[in-house]
């Protein structure tokens, strides 16, 4: 386990939103190994979303961030992002096509996959996500939970090296959460999952990081050590 490559490294990272006087993330250091599933836990406003966004280069940071061995800088942004799958907390914003299937297949075609192949694989992904019947629907016509499932399909389908997922289970019904946890548990990509849902986190993660006011206050493999 120890010699697996590191897919995400934060070294003394601080993040501040423009116009804000306080750090949303302060002096954070952490490492994630290939294939590792890590839950990012914390109360509202503790900095989970900010940390995910910094890791994808969506917020400016101090300190150093490495993704899959690449230093996150302006010049390396595109290279870094090709290795990342991201789920935004408002899934609607990341759906860019008027047909669900096209949206998911886009994640594969940008990676150079053939169109027909991309469609087939996307159909399987949507099926696994419980929204196979919506392949030809328009994203505007979906419920919030369905949009979440479609956006997730687009983030997972190309099996990126690192998945950064903001509240993936938030809008799902109980059977949906169980199915998603099982799917995540079997997914080969490394995942950093922001959530408040301890039960969900326990089902699909093997490590738990607790944030409080922008600082990592606990990093453990025992979820029992964490209370929210």
């Amino acid at each position: 386990m120890t010699d697996l490559p590191i897919v995400l490294r934060f070294d003394d990272v601080s993040v501040r939103h423009s116009g804000s006087h306080v750090d949303a993330i302060h002096g954070c250091s952490l490492e994630m190994k290939e294939g590792e599933h890590v839950a990012l836990l914390g109360l509202n406003g503790s900095g989970k979303t900010s940390l995910l966004m910094a890791a994808a280069g969506l917020l400016p940071h101090e300190g150093t961030i490495d993704v899959d061995g690449i230093r996150l800088e302006n010049s390396s942004l595109a290279e870094v992002r090709r290795r990342i799958g991201f789920l935004f907390s408002t899934p609607e914003d990341q759906l860019l096509f008027p047909r669900v299937l096209d949206d998911v297949a886009f994640s594969l075609t940008t990676q150079g996959r053939k169109e027909g192949e991309a469609r087939e694989e996307s159909e399987r992904m949507l099926e696994a996500m419980g929204v196979g019947a919506l392949a030809n629907a328009a994203p505007y016509e979906l419920s919030f939970g369905q949009k979440m499932r479609v956006a997730l399909s687009g983030a997972l389908v190309h099996k990126p090296r690192l998945l950064l997922l903001d509240e993936p289970s938030g809008a799902l019904d109980p059977p949906g959460k169980r199915a998603l946890a099982a799917l995540f548990a079997a997914h080969p990509s490394a995942m950093l999952i922001a959530t408040h849902d301890l039960v969900f986190a326990e089902r699909c993660c093997d490590r738990f990081i607790l944030l409080e006011a922008g600082k990592v206050v606990r990093d453990t493999v025992q979820i029992g050590e964490i209370t929210l």
Binding site: R81, R82, D93, Q94
Partner: peptide
């Protein structure tokens, strides 16, 4: 919204291909 959509486009490589 435009800001967030712009971020999502960047993340998903929209425009690159």
């Amino acid at each position: 919204r435009a800001d967030r959509v712009g971020m999502a486009m960047d993340m998903r490589g929209y425009g690159a291909i």
